[in-house]
Design a binder for these strands. Structure first.
Lengths: 144, 144
DNA sequence: TATTGTTATACTCTATAACTATA
DNA sequence: TATAGTTATAGAGTATAACAATA
């Protein structure tokens, strides 16, 4: 380990851990994508299924996915084509709710099962995962 | 905390920590991009500068960036336009080495300094960062 | 024939802007 | 007039395939 008080040492230390952080996040993404691909789902479709415990407006789904509403249109189309969801009118008729079909609920349950079995972070035991969570929270917390 | 032995509980636990992992990696990326933008550099340019302690072939740079060699062409063009690097012929004349100019070495040093000051992971103290590194290594290690 | 770097092109993901139908 | 969703388009980032020069 290098002396973290000198500038070059601090950089090297940061670079090493940052690279590892990127690699881990990428690994988690790849594992998720592979797991849901086995269920015939794109990553976006799977994430949207997970948001739909209850019917939700397109706008709410966009917020949940962290994307623009225009992007949700295509994902909703894909889920409808696959027979996993349907659009239904809200009481405010500008709003369309996306609602899972019976098959959609089943598939959503399948996603939860496979992710609960194969999620990358579950390679850690409960204590390790709690430790990881605490450290990550420090990193994403607003500046002190 | 939910009972991690039931499928729904395991999924919820995994989802929570995974989301946090994604958010942290994104935060680290955003911080890096912002820090090097202040130096007039794109993220790709900054990463390439960091690889060029010594002149290196395009192919080697591609491996370092984890991208296709065709992508390096544009990054090298950008660095040349900015007067930070130049292409020089290798002894094998198929090979072009990318070599930093004096200004390029200075800028590379600036990048190391600002990252050593502002890297997201440096918000953790040495012990915490060592702990994080150990946990992440468990996650990216090949399956047992 | 195989390899390096480049070019031209295409693909994925996602956003912006303009449009419609309500409100 | 403001908002929800859609459409068409554009952009960033990156890869693939074909090519010229060299080995």
């Amino acid at each position: 380990m290098s002396d973290s008080s000198d500038p070059a040492g601090r950089f090297a230390e940061a670079a090493r851990v940052t690279r590892l952080l990127y690699a881990t996040a990428q690994r988690a993404r790849d594992d998720f994508t592979a797991a849901v691909a086995d269920l015939g789902l794109s990553s976006a479709m799977a994430r949207t299924l997970l948001l739909l415990a209850e019917p939700a407006p397109m706008r709410t789904i966009a917020d949940g996915l962290g994307c623009d509403p225009s992007y949700v249109t295509g994902v909703a189309d894909d889920l409808e084509s696959a027979g996993l969801a349907r659009r239904v009118a809200g009481t405010d008729r500008r709003i369309k709710l996306l609602e899972l079909t019976a098959a959609g609920h089943d598939r959503r349950s399948d996603v939860q099962t496979v992710i609960g079995q194969h999620a990358t972070v579950l390679r850690l035991d409960d204590a390790q995962r709690a430790q990881l969570e605490g450290l990550l929270q420090l990193l994403v917390a607003p500046p002190a």
